[in-house]
Design a protein around this nucleic acid. Structure first.
Lengths: 213, 213, 213, 213
DNA sequence: TATGAATGAGGATTCATTCAT
DNA sequence: CATGAATGAATCCTCATTCAT
């Protein structure tokens, strides 16, 4: 939260300025979606937002800070939608919960699909790391917690490994599904990934049991 | 080869030319690895290659064509290493073959890890699509062929779906493994992914069987 | 006083206004001393003064007017300190008076040395001319008056010439002494300059006498 | 000579480029003389030189490097003219030599008077220090050498002090004379300064003698 | 009056690309 | 073919100034 270079020069104090910030971030997202990263110059974004280039720098230290703000908003909205689903899933059985979570991740990505495509497909992924990190942390916490609770018999190492793979499955596959849009029905896809996860967890648990005994 | 914008103005016909092209692509790869995408300007690459900026345009229509050449060489080297492994795998049983293929993909990525990181982590992924496409095609062909042979009972749709998931598994996970370097032993990782694939194939086949009957 | 571009939009009539003007000029001087000419933007000065950029333009027509005000205050303070010394010097003999004046000029410069350095070393000297002019006029009046009284035999031309040189001596050398801080003891420096002046006056008077006879 | 930031990006290798560099520095000097420091933007100078802004940066790392080059050329030309005069002066007697040197300094300044005025009157004197330093060093060497030879009886401290004052006299006064153009005949001015110097040297020598005995 | 958000022309600088030699 | 000087549009960013509230 407190980076070295503040990504905002000044906190907006009036209503007007809060609206301006909103307009700028909106415009940046729009330009990214429509024209791509290279074309998303500060002047272009300012024009799209209907503000002067100077205004942009009133609120964002530099171009990167602005693009970070777009990513941050994407992540915020993603979490806004995902977290309640994770909470609901806690009360379900393992199979249902797994399916729910996969579905929720997919849905949360789909909700912002155009921007996601722009971010994944166009932004040089120095930025992308940040894009994924926040999401990954959220999912990792959940998955780790769940697995730890359900499989107390697993060694810490095995648990970490299992978590990593499960998170990648629950994240990389939905992300590629949304970005690449393969000709696979949504339901089938969710079921496939859920099965994948469950089968893998079962397999690892079985192996560890075998080793332990 | 004959796209709208010609990649190359003329094919190198003399040895000297071919060597010059090689030096330029080498230089580009080196600069990308060392200094990143933003710093990889044509002038810098020309300097690194020890040629004049003018010369660069003798062989590459524009900057993108050059960077495509870097990607192309990455893919070529990847295939050079992967294809023999795929051929060898054909003669192994299902479990061994799966493990071999995963291992081969991983090894082929690791061989060019620094450049891969540069390409994945720094290139605006308009290019990345191409980077992945060629690899994916190669692996898809193999996986599809293998699955089709071994599971003639599967419907074309199921086969496509299965192929897509398996390819993603065999590709996304190793790629993330190489790029993110999680604290998981290589052997364990390969075994995990292989298990994942096998379990999933078995699951889908079983389901389809159930449906079919 | 009534230049083409009015220095101030309105004369401060209330106490509060006068205090605000004071704070702004203080802030400008502080920023100049601390951060230099380039950094002394109107916004920065306004922030330092704790007023809004808009307020600044209530009192100063433009940036230059503000910087002129800083210079003017420097000169005013310089004079405040110099004039009493000049008055006192009138009652001393020639040698003592010369030394006193040199010493007074030096002291008056030293009192505001940091700001002086900022003004001399940082302000684009369109402004510098003004900085020097006021001081020079004051000293010139005094020197001219003194010399005219003591050497009625000098021709007007000789008097002008002598005055110019003496003023330069009494001003350029102390200024360079304060700005460059050479490794010369203050006392010695004052004595040197005084001797310089006296010797020169004596020399010119002697020459003129020779010519006249 | 070898500063941290190279003031030239690349040394010109062809005749054409040497001419371009020349044109750029010429243009910069012209713009400085005509329009002042503030107006001397890189784009303006490039336009005046009839080259593209890019060309300017082929030879000068940044704006300051270019302005330094202007100053450097001023100093070089100044020295070109001054050094022979200093050499000639060595063979003259003390009075003639002093007059010659003052005259030479003045002449060397006058030769580039418009640019000098621009540099002194317009450039923020961070740069000015450099302008003066080179000249001062040259003159200091000469003066120190001469005084040391002629007055072996002086203590090192006295010699340093004397040198500083004499150099300031031989430099500050001519500089102000050229910049301010006071209504004093050139001959008279040179004679005055020479007298000033000689009288001061004699005075200090006498004093030191008195102290020593 | 005071505020602070907004302005926008202008600045320094870069870099893909061209072209005379 | 190769060179490297030259190009110039475009980029990010600043800051003196204005103006609605």
């Amino acid at each position: 939260m407190s980076s070295v270079r503040p990504n905002r020069r000044r906190e907006p104090q009036q209503d007007r300025s809060r609206r301006t910030v909103e307009r700028i971030v909106d415009a940046a997202a729009r330009v990214l979606e429509r024209d791509g990263y290279r074309a998303a110059s500060t002047n272009r974004i300012a024009a799209e937002a209907g503000v002067s280039p100077g205004s942009l720098y009133q609120y964002f230290g530099d171009r990167d800070a602005l693009l970070e703000a777009v990513t941050a908003r994407f992540v915020a909205r993603f979490e806004e939608q995902l977290v309640p689903a994770l909470r609901r899933a806690v009360r379900e059985d393992q199979v249902a919960a797994t399916t729910s979570v996969i579905d929720a991740v997919l849905a949360a990505l789909e909700q912002q699909a155009p921007l996601l495509r722009a971010l994944v497909a166009r932004i040089p992924p120095e930025r992308q790391a940040e894009l994924t990190r926040a999401i990954r942390e959220r999912v990792t916490d959940y998955v780790f917690g769940t697995l730890a609770r359900q499989h107390v018999e697993l060694s810490p190492d095995a648990l970490d490994r299992l978590t990593w793979v499960v998170v990648e499955l629950a994240q990389s596959l939905p992300l590629r599904y949304v970005v690449d849009a393969p000709p696979i029905p949504r339901e089938a896809f969710v079921a496939d990934v859920a099965r994948l996860v469950l089968a893998h967890v079962a397999g690892v648990v079985a192996d560890e049991g075998a080793i332990a005994s």
